[in-house]
């Protein structure tokens, strides 16, 4: 039976990660450690897929576990690899009888003192982000309650990671929005400075600004920013030319 008190606290801690400062490695280390504390398992580890699709060890409850997981990746066979690729749980595998399935991984895990293994996919909609490995010292089956609790932990961690990715996108998009708004503001300010310096109207000032940016291979917003903040003298810009400028003398 899972330890209910630890489980509940873990759910709350994982959910907290949705709102507070978020670190994927911290979150998954918490998941690994609490899995060992709350469930009837000896070691736990989490692998996540990199954008390339290759799995990486992100968190382990012990050094021995980390070494075994690194070995699993190197051999490209084992419970996490299967759970990640199939998107289905791999449960209650007796390692002593698994040499045919995992010829490298199974003997290595037995030598490490483990008797059975379980791996749960971290799934969101149709995507599998990674998998959680749980190893036991006994070959007896893990109770259904433990399996369900482990999957629930993995699911919450998955949601936290997906939400975090959305938040990263939101930040980038908001930064782009802010930069674009600021660009438009400084362009208007630069137009005003040029208009005043060279006695032009706003349209002529904008034509001058554009022509100068084009001729000097500068981005319009960058040039405007330097005029607005005073690093470029607006008087050096103004060279009114007729709108259109298709017949630019060269």
């Amino acid at each position: 039976m899972p330890d209910q008190a630890i489980l509940v606290r873990t759910f709350v801690d994982l959910a907290d990660n949705l709102v507070d400062d978020f670190d994927v490695v911290d979150l998954l280390s918490l998941l690994a450690d609490r899995s060992v504390a709350a469930l009837d398992v000896a070691a736990a580890g989490v692998m996540l897929a990199a954008p390339s699709g290759a799995l990486q060890v992100v968190a382990s409850s012990s050094d021995a576990m980390r070494t075994l997981e690194l070995f699993e990746l190197q051999a490209d066979e084992g419970p996490c690899v299967d759970a990640y690729r199939s998107g289905e749980p791999v449960v209650n595998i007796d390692l002593a009888a698994a040499a045919a399935r995992w010829p490298s991984f199974a003997p290595r895990a037995v030598r490490g003192g483990f008797a059975s293994v379980h791996s749960l996919p971290m799934r969101h909609r149709k995507r599998t982000l990674g998998a959680v490995n749980l190893l036991r010292s006994e070959a007896t089956p893990l109770a259904d309650d433990d399996v369900h609790a482990a999957q629930a932990l993995a699911d919450i961690a998955t949601i936290a990671i997906v939400q975090h990715q959305l938040a990263i996108d939101a930040r980038i998009l908001n930064d782009q929005l802010a930069a674009a708004l600021n660009s438009r503001v400084v362009i208007e300010q630069a137009k005003g400075k040029i208009a005043q310096s060279a006695h032009l109207d706003m349209d002529q000032a904008f034509q001058s600004l554009r022509a100068h940016a084009r001729n000097h291979n500068l981005r319009l917003a960058e040039l405007a920013g330097r005029i607005a903040d005073g690093t470029i003298d607006p008087r050096s810009i103004a060279s009114p030319r007729p709108a259109g400028g298709a017949s630019r003398p060269s």
Partner: peptide
């Protein structure tokens, strides 16, 4: 902002 640019020069 256009006006601010002008006043800044003035």
């Amino acid at each position: 902002h256009q006006a601010a640019g002008m006043v800044s020069v003035q």
